[in-house]
Design a protein around this nucleic acid. Structure first.
Lengths: 222, 222
DNA sequence: CGGGCCGCTCAGCCCACGTTCAGGTTGGCG
DNA sequence: CGCCAACCTGAACGTGGGCTGAGCGGCCCG
């Protein structure tokens, strides 16, 4: 899962970045409203963490423009200690959740995961697909009940696929959601990782549709 | 475990600090309500000892603001000889326990430990996790029934992990709860301590999740 | 004042992880 | 049947995160 952080305060931005990366996300950061808006407009993020007090273009406007342009990714608003006006304006502009500073870092992780989950239509934090289980919070994966040890990247790939079971996911789509913006699109490391994943969870679970992408085999339907 | 003392009377503050440190806690002290509030607002304490009669900002207000901001750490109130109004106000503001002066020093330790235990969802003062036993009161640790000799820091680390068995605890989270505020976050002393701890309780008990943190192996169940 | 224990620092080592690369394999198509 | 593109895979590598042994200084206690 790939997220965008829009936060002007460098210390907090960095802290958030570390948090989310250690939480298993691919992360891009923007330090003002304009950059933030542009990134969110052009890159396919699974969620955004958006501060309201921003230079150049304030958070509410950023959000408003995104929504106007038809972007539907979930947005988690950060705002200074409960200022009602901000909060309301945020929701009106299309925020999905908000946190007032100061907040527990952990809280951000949980809320983000919940947002992403809901946005892809899953109620439970634990995704299931055939014999596969994936807990988005603890980051654990099980196959037929036995735990499977995955690396960070393997986990991201599997998580994205499990958020869209049965759907054909193109290589580029997968790369865009698993890597951050600096990644070289000509690399074949994704294929290598897919291979390793297959070895761990059984080759038949991830099906290759030649010329189109990959599909996670669902519980025989669809 | 890391606690905050908010107490304006220097002698008592110092006495409490020594007591809690010798009791195995990492301790910060604030001498007035404003400092106290700010520390409790920004640092992740496992519990707070809060005097009600404070300069600048009284205890009830401090507590009230914390709760308003969403902080849920347990708070043990200290108050001059049973003044009902204070006591009631304290509970209303979200206190978890209280002691009236004068009190036995030991009493503070026991109450604090009980509060922390309950806050992390443990009913018993003795934590168990696989072959590991840890008595939060006596500070004794056993592995398969045989006592294990731990140093103060080793004990704190293990105690924190055992309060959250199975959870992945990031290096920073661990540091925040095991050291006080003056600690250098770039130090690797935690790793050294983890290493020693592993040598004493068996390396496989503490699992490293690369890039994320440590996890105490539970009694085989998610 | 001396000795021992404890915790911290530092530097070097090790190894997991992501990546690259060089073939090998598969499948579509003329 | 042959060719080409898409895809897979085993091996090797560089990097950085994590581990550890050695040494130091501070503190406590005799």
């Amino acid at each position: 899962m790939r997220v965008l952080i829009v936060e002007d305060e460098p210390a907090l931005a960095f802290q958030l970045q570390r948090l989310l990366e250690s939480g298993g996300f691919a992360v891009d950061v923007a330090y003002d409203g304009e950059d933030g808006w542009h990134l969110g407009d052009t890159e396919p993020y699974d969620a955004v963490v958006l501060d309201l007090g921003l230079p150049k273009l304030d958070g509410v406007s950023v959000l408003g423009r995104w929504r106007e342009a038809g972007h539907t990714m979930p947005v988690l608003i950060l705002t200074a200690r409960s200022r009602w006006s901000d909060k309301m304006a945020g929701f009106n502009a299309g925020a999905d959740d908000y946190l007032t500073k100061p907040f527990e870092m952990e809280e951000v992780l949980y809320r983000l995961r919940a947002l992403i989950r809901r946005a892809s239509g899953h109620a439970q934090p634990e995704l299931a697909c055939g014999p596969l289980r994936l807990d988005t919070n603890s980051g654990r994966v099980g196959l037929d009940g036995v735990p499977v040890q995955l690396t960070a990247q393997e986990f991201r790939i599997l998580a994205y696929l499990m958020h869209h079971p049965g759907k054909v996911v193109s290589r580029t789509e997968l790369m865009e959601h698993v890597y951050d913006r600096l990644f070289d699109p000509d690399s074949n490391s994704l294929e290598v990782l897919i291979g390793r994943l297959r070895r761990k969870i059984g080759p038949e679970r991830i099906e290759t549709i030649r010329g189109q992408g990959y599909r996670l085999a669902g519980p025989e339907a669809g």
